[in-house]
Design a protein around this nucleic acid. Structure first.
Length: 502
DNA sequence: TTAGGGTTAG
């Protein structure tokens, strides 16, 4: 009971007081509480325990953390450790400290999955020395590294703008005791293609190694999709030709990739002709094909054609999926009217479909956009009663539109409602902080400052621009003391303008 | 973490 209370204090956010910490006595109680998690734990208990431990890690003195962790009367499990690492995602150094302390735990040994998480975190911090040290330790313990581990590392290199190093990682797998196969080959190709490095994937990897790994339909599809992602449909078509020449039969996925590629490149005519060709060649058109068509026509405002395709699929005996409805509803919102979108929503419900998070978010955004705030809020309530919890996007949309409409209070009250499954992200803070400037009130600027403190506390680094803006605002409204505090924070975050020195 | 469809505005 008391644990729940503590939890709530720690995780709930209040705008005006901003981020509550455990008071020292409660903290001590928490540490000494012997049964706050028992041997047999439900998923809910694991989640709660993960939150508690993450808080403990964040608030403990680094020197005493190891002792605190080892002293806890609870059985660590791989699931629990993974959850804690996820909670500490934005606190890389702390997360790695936690991981390291547990490596020396008397009765717990890390799983491969936790190693992968830790490697992911170190990679995100671009701390490659730690990445490879962890890989070596995994190997020493004979629990990896696996192809998944290498996929994670490659992905991190690509995200850091080093695709060539990602390729090297793939090529070095065997040296680290991990066999390569067609699977891992396709994975690295996909990682490169999804980051729009298709040229490199094709020339430096695919062309060189497709013989060795016996490239299959999946490999070719990945490359074709890569070209489509950068709107180079002729190259994708070449790949299609090439695979046929090599005796591989394109699948429906191949065709759908090309079709989507045409729409993405704005080649409506080609898309339509390609669709007709698919029919002529008696390719087994599926629900993805139709969804692509509905969405493709809809986004360019061809609502009638989108509707026609939608109706046609039913005639062909192919049932729309929730994704198909989502596509239709989205384009109705954007290019037709939100009223018709709502009608479509009700129609799908009547037919027995269960709207998902995307469905709700699309309708809610449409309603806000049309200025129908009340109805949008009704839908937010409706999704909750439907057992579909609003996520960070739902809240961000609501906050953004309320603030844009000048109703800062409503925006703030939406922010306060955000909870466990929908914690604020960088976007949320940016929108809110900007909104604190519209009324030009001194109190608002203090709130902006507090939001800034809170976002840093949660591992988000504000832009220099945001810092300066808040700083100037506070100075102009006579909040000198608070401005000083913000300036110290700015320095800590390495976001200080050059002329400043503390 | 081997491939294809549906969520953002500025």
């Amino acid at each position: 009971m008391l644990r729940r209370k503590i939890n709530r204090r720690v995780t709930k956010t209040k705008t005006n007081t901003v981020f509550l910490h455990l008071s020292p006595p409660l903290h001590r109680f928490f540490l000494s509480c012997p049964n706050f998690i028992t041997q047999s734990t439900s998923a809910l208990d694991t989640a709660a325990a993960a939150t508690d431990i993450a808080t403990l890690v964040l608030e403990s003195d680094p020197k005493s953390l190891r002792g605190s962790l080892h002293g806890l009367q609870l059985q660590f499990t791989p699931e629990l450790v993974d959850k804690v690492l996820k909670r500490l995602w934005f606190h890389g150094p702390k997360a790695l400290q936690f991981f390291k302390h547990l490596e020396y735990h008397p009765s717990y040994a890390h799983s491969a999955s936790s190693f992968d998480h830790a490697i992911d975190i170190a990679g995100r911090m671009r701390d490659y020395k730690t990445v490879w040290a962890l890989v070596a330790r995994m190997r020493a313990r004979r629990i990896g590294p696996s192809s998944k581990t290498f996929a994670i590392i490659a992905e991190r290199f690509v995200a850091a703008g080093k695709p060539d190093r990602a390729i090297k990682v793939f090529l070095s797998m065997r040296e680290h005791g991990c066999p390569q196969d067609l699977h891992s080959f396709n994975t690295i190709l996909d990682i490169l293609c999804k980051s729009k490095r298709v040229e490199m994937a094709y020339n430096n990897l695919f062309k060189v190694l497709r013989g060795k790994f016996k490239a299959d339909v999946v490999s070719y599809n990945i490359i074709a999709n890569g070209w489509c992602l950068i709107k180079r449909t002729p190259k994708a078509l070449e790949v299609l030709k090439e695979m046929v020449e090599r005796g591989l039969t394109p699948t429906i996925t191949t065709y759908n990739i090309l079709l989507k590629g045409y729409f993405r490149a704005g080649q409506l005519k080609e898309a339509w002709e390609f669709f007709l060709q698919m029919k002529e060649r008696e390719v087994e058109i599926d629900v993805v094909t139709y969804t692509t068509m509905v969405h493709g026509f809809g986004v360019v405002g061809e609502i009638k054609r989108a509707r026609k395709v939608f109706n046609e699929m039913v005639g062909e005996g192919i049932l729309p999926s929730t994704a198909t409805y989502n596509a239709m509803i989205q384009v109705l919102c954007k290019k037709d009217s939100v009223e018709n979108a709502v009608l479509m929503f009700e129609e799908m419900v009547k037919k027995g479909y269960v709207p998902n998070l995307t469905t709700y978010n699309v309708v809610i955004r449409g309603l806000f956009h049309a200025g129908n705030m009340d109805k949008a809020m009704e839908f937010i309530e409706r999704m909750k009663t439907d057992g579909c919890e609003p996520n960070v996007q739902t809240y961000n949309v609501a906050i953004r539109y309320f603030c844009d409409a000048g109703d800062v209070e409503k925006g703030l009250s939406m922010f306060e409602k955000m909870g466990q499954g929908s914690l604020p992200n960088l976007d949320t803070y940016n929108v809110l902080i900007s909104a604190m400037f519209v009324r030009k009130k001194s109190e608002d600027l203090v709130v902006a400052g507090k939001l800034l403190l809170e976002m840093v506390d949660r591992g988000f680094i504000p832009r220099k621009f945001t810092f300066n803006r808040v700083l100037n605002g506070l100075l102009l409204t006579g909040n000198q003391a608070f401005a000083k505090e913000i300036l110290r924070l700015q320095s800590k975050c390495g976001r200080l303008p050059r002329q400043f020195k503390l």
